[in-house]
Amino acid sequence: MAVKKDYKDQKLVEKLQDRNYYVSDSNPEFIKEVERLGRTAAHMCYQCGTCTGSCPSAPRSSYRIRLFMRKAILGLEEEVLTDPDLWLCTTCYSCTDRCPRNLAPTDAIMAMRNLAFKRDIVPRNFLKTVQAIYKTGHGVPNNDANRAARKKLGLDEEPETTHKYPEYLPGLRKIIDHYKMKEKADRILAEGE
């Protein structure tokens, strides 16, 4: 455990905070969860940096996929799940394609996002997509301008999806409700208001 410094000057407490890595701060189960969800042997990472070198997000942000892998292996769950950079992966899979250890760092990141979501840590745009799909079956639903364009093209105004056949929506919603995802999205979005 990091040494607590009860100095009266809060600024100094921050400046001088204990930056040691303590094994006791780590959760050894975390990497196992990441591996189970991501279906990849993340603990085999040898930190070569091929992933970060491949990453389109790295050069324009502080997002370092290699560091997420490292922290996951060390069980630094808290640090990983609360890091806003976790959501900067575009899932381009370049790192996965090139990883010499044959790992899927992208899927490890997806797993970490899943674990963050379990703790209600999730950007709002993800939840809005959930709401849209729950409502219409589409993440990007139809609109009037598009309906007019479709008509001009000789297509039905509504595509042959849940849009045209809303009778399929209850089944779809049942799936989402099975995992209580919509409920959770509504709650988190409401709490954030």
Binding site: T129, I133, T161, T162, I176
Partner: peptide, 29 residues
Amino acid sequence: LPLKGASCCPAPGAFGAIDLNVWYAMAAR
């Protein structure tokens, strides 16, 4: 031919990122 009643795939980034199980099940549908 029209695949009647299909939905969003669902978006791998948006859905898979937060709950892979939902992604599997919705895509499976």
